[in-house]
Design a protein around this nucleic acid. Structure first.
Lengths: 238, 238
DNA sequence: CCAAAAGTGTTTGCTCTACACCCATGG
DNA sequence: CCATGGGTGTAGAGCAAACACTTTTGG
């Protein structure tokens, strides 16, 4: 079998002459809206699984880094750029796609609550929608498994890392931050302990501004600009 | 460009007609021998990087699961089967291989100290050798970066998971186990605290046998058979 | 009996948890 | 002045770290 032979650099004596799997990226985009953790899904238009919901994703360009492909797919589907992206896992069971061998590199993304997301039918023909994590439709391929794992990892990261900020606007109140944690972890937290822990971590700083609403106005915070770099440094996944 | 078109299922109307990256697996095989943490490397015979040392690895078969490919490469290089294997990360920078686009799924493996490893020139033409982690030769591709990350992850896992047993024979003494931890973490640990922690974790059980040598004989332990399953369950990486 | 490694408890500091009331604002 | 959410401190328990001597065997 001689395939892909025209993409081969003839000066390099190595055996590239085999059929290759297709490589895709899939993105698990999380956001917190309407008090719930939600995941972005798109409706498939073509078989297999036509009409079913699936993770946004697509083929990796031949000159495109993997994370760039994930960022591109996310941007195409939602218009969101610059979101937090992290490689999750690579799924490659031979039968995971009925069309043939497709290996997919899954990324998870955190979308700030105030990001203007163009969903509900983006310019890509496919319809895109947010679904609450506990009310997912039937999913194509092995995407249910992928989402379940992404959720585990998100919860886990939330406990030892400062990644929760990525789901909030640039400035936020401590109560808003706590609510995000509670929604994702699925349990309620003690206000005083939460504030103490977060402040001791020394990754957010108070601003001279307040959010006004019902009740006493709440001080606004932002994460320290250099804490962003630190979150990356602490990452266990490069 | 119409490539790979003969592998396509014609009943499936989807665009597979694009060039594809090659997909490989690379294995970072750790072992503890001669009091040091070591990594298995093979010497490349062909360009690029002919003569340089590299991680064992190779192409993924079209019907082969990713982990199976990693296990196969490891077995071909060392004869070791059934070792602990865990997916590490997928590397896909467009320029990481001068021959063209090669995406590699890296796995790390833990080889028990008593496993009969056929290295030093296996039946595969390439020579294979263990290298101490702190005395690595120049490495091909981005393999130095991959090993650095694998080491970080190994150290991290050792602290919150019971993975250290995978580097020891089926039965071992607590001192041997402690030595493995010390070698990998690069620091010495308090004997009493170490024993208390390990025993409280309730994953190993004492046997009615002793290892005799210089000094007082040491009780042998093994990890509980069902603890193996539990280690897998605790895994954060499916 | 001596060398060598195995084995064993207690104290102390610290971190995490549980818990209840006053404060500032808008209507 | 009242309803609403924001903001604050302390005591007790459980956990982790520091630390030194006795025991068993082989030579």
């Amino acid at each position: 079998m001689l395939l892909n032979s025209d993409t081969r650099d003839k000066t390099m004596p190595y055996c590239y002459e085999y059929p290759r799997p297709a490589v895709t990226v899939d993105v698990i985009a999380f956001t917190v809206r309407e008090g719930r953790l939600q995941v972005l899904l798109v409706q498939r238009e073509r078989p297999p699984f036509a009409g079913a919901w699936a993770l946004p994703g697509g083929f990796v360009g031949m000159e495109e880094p993997l994370e760039a492909a994930a960022a591109r797919e996310l941007a195409e589907e939602t218009g969101v750029e610059g979101a937090y992206l992290e490689q999750l896992y690579t799924y490659g069971a031979p039968d995971r796609d009925p069309r043939g061998r497709v290996i997919t590199v899954a990324y998870f993304a955190l979308i700030p609550a105030d990001a203007p997301v163009r969903a509900e039918g983006g310019d890509d023909a496919a319809q895109a929608r947010w679904f609450p994590i506990n009310a997912l439709p039937d999913l194509a391929f092995d995407h249910a498994e992928i989402i379940a794992y992404a959720l585990r990892r998100l919860r886990y990261k939330l406990e030892y890392t400062a990644v929760g900020f990525q789901l909030l606007p640039e400035t936020f109140t401590l109560s808003e931050l706590q609510r995000v944690y509670e929604i994702i972890l699925g349990e309620s937290l003690d206000k005083r302990n939460f504030r103490r822990r977060i402040l001791k971590a020394d990754i957010i700083e108070p601003l001279d501004a307040f959010r006004t609403g019902e009740g006493r106005p709440a001080r606004l915070y932002r994460y320290k600009p250099d804490a962003v770099a630190e979150v990356k440094a602490r990452r266990l996944f490069p």
